[in-house]
Amino acid sequence: MCLSASYRLRVAARLPRLCEGPTIQDPPDLHRGPRARREVSTWSPFEPENGQNTQSFHADTPFCNSFEWRTLGNRPSYVSYNSVHYVDPSGYKWSWKKFFAIAAAVVVGVVTGQLELPGIVAAAFSAATVAAATAEGAAIDRLSERQGSVSAVLPTSSPGGPPSSFPSLGQTLSQVATSVLTPAYNTLTRPGWNYGLYFSELDAGKGLLNRSLPGALLDSAWFASGVYGAIELAASRALLVSPATVLAPSSKVIPRQTTVLGSRADTLAFKGQPGYNVLDIPNWTLKKNIKWLDSAFRRGDILKIVTDPSTWKAANPQSAFFQELKYLAWRLRGTIDYGQ
């Protein structure tokens, strides 16, 4: 059916604009001549005059210039980049072909170790990998310098699946908290200068936990009252596996490391050691320093504090190390109890 140009214009005028901001029409591309104005006022996936595909440049479709438009990429992808033969005016056509292609890519990625699935998904999907890593103790060793807290959080582990202290999502939060996590939390929150280690361990598991546990659990009072941190730690112990176990050598994913914080002289001992990330910035500035710390957070690094802050405060009250600690406290907000 061929619709008249005036009808198409009227329809286009009634279509809702999903986002504010500049569009192709404003300011009008007058310098491009009449052809450009015709493009924005008529809809056709195919420009008959010169055979050029102009589908992705039309402005009068419902989600032109909207957020979806920009994030989903080219609309011709919905018609397999063949808009000459296929028409998908809405752009929402379901493609089984595309779905299976993505699913196959994910499966291949996980099997070959190229892709690391987060949290519970990883535990369920590759239970054998997790069990092996837990049994060897390699994952735990890499994740913590403090074996005492590890044993408190994960008293036993079964060889056929995830550790039994954090067995399934079906176990109620109160059971977990009273049986396992409260003593673990008490162990973790003892005072001392090296509390930074707790921050780091908690934060390492935070991202995974947030993705893997239902929001209802995260919103419960237990999390707010301090057990939150311990649960995160338990999850990180149970669900994180060492990078060497999961990632193939050819993987481009940057593995987790141990980021070393402290005075410059103290951190030198870890410089160049495999698995350790030590600040080494030419033309150092505080801004660069914080960016470096941010990258450690993005990787989910373990943070190892090698200088006693209270001692170092007496030696160098204005050290950049204290700026780092201040940033840590701000960044890791919510993962530590603030006491009574």
Binding site: P309, S310, F322, W330, G334
Partner: peptide, 16 residues
């Protein structure tokens, strides 16, 4: 310094 650090943590936790 320790007091300031604890206060910072406390404030951020409270806000959360």
């Amino acid at each position: 310094w320790e007091k300031e650090q604890k206060k910072l943590v406390k404030d951020t936790n409270l806000g959360r």
